[in-house]
Simulated scan of single mutants.
Amino acid sequence: MDAQKIQTYISKPDRILLGVSAALSQRLSISTVAIRLALLIITLFFIPFGLLIYLILYLALVSKKGKILTYSLIGALFGIPMSYYFQSELVQNWGGGAGIFGYLTALPEIMEEYHDFVGNAWSLAGNIVLSILVFALLGGAIGYFLEKNRSSNQS
């Protein structure tokens, strides 16, 4: 593929994968190339977070599903990193207290060491599931009120 074909493919205004860049460029009046490059750079440097950002943007901007489902899924995705705050101080301070990013990247090692020294690492997994459920319910409630507000404004 030559450079001209690549440039036309990347800069086309319509959707390539899920239409996130096209929808975002229409809303923000920014070129699709800049948005695609920004998403690519975020994904290359922060692989899971870039993919989560892309999925969240898809659910928020492009998806035609109801706001309740969309915001519930966004909340569930947000619940994974926020599960850090549902863990004990022992887990939060593991490895010198590296914060949420250290917690997410070292979660398998944390669970192994927790199981070896404290026992029952399933409590950590339970906290993660609890966080996902709490944030999914919060997101669903936000989506419900936004949808209710939109339908009352249209009446």
Results as ranks from 00 to 15, higher is better:
Y58G: 00
L59D: 03
A60H: 02
A60G: 04
A60S: 12
L61T: 02
L61C: 08
K64M: 14
K64S: 14
K64E: 14
K65G: 03
K67T: 08
L69N: 00
T70D: 06
T70K: 08
L73W: 02
L73Q: 02
I80R: 01
P81S: 09
S83C: 12
S83H: 00
S83Y: 00
Y84R: 05
Y85S: 08
F86N: 11
Q87E: 13
V91R: 00
V91Q: 00
W94P: 01
G95Y: 02
G96M: 04
G96E: 05
G97Q: 06
G97E: 14
A98P: 01
A98G: 09
A98Q: 15
G99P: 07
G99H: 13
I100H: 10
I100L: 14
F101E: 15
F101I: 14
G102V: 11
G102Q: 12
Y103M: 02
L104N: 09
A106Y: 08
E109I: 11
E109M: 07
I110F: 08
M111H: 12
E112C: 04
E112I: 13
D116M: 12
V118D: 06
N120P: 02
A121V: 10
W122C: 07
W122K: 06
W122T: 12
W122S: 13
L124M: 10
L124T: 12
A125C: 05
A125I: 15
G126Y: 09
G126D: 10
N127S: 13
N127T: 06
I128N: 01
V129Y: 11
L130T: 13
L133E: 04
L133R: 00
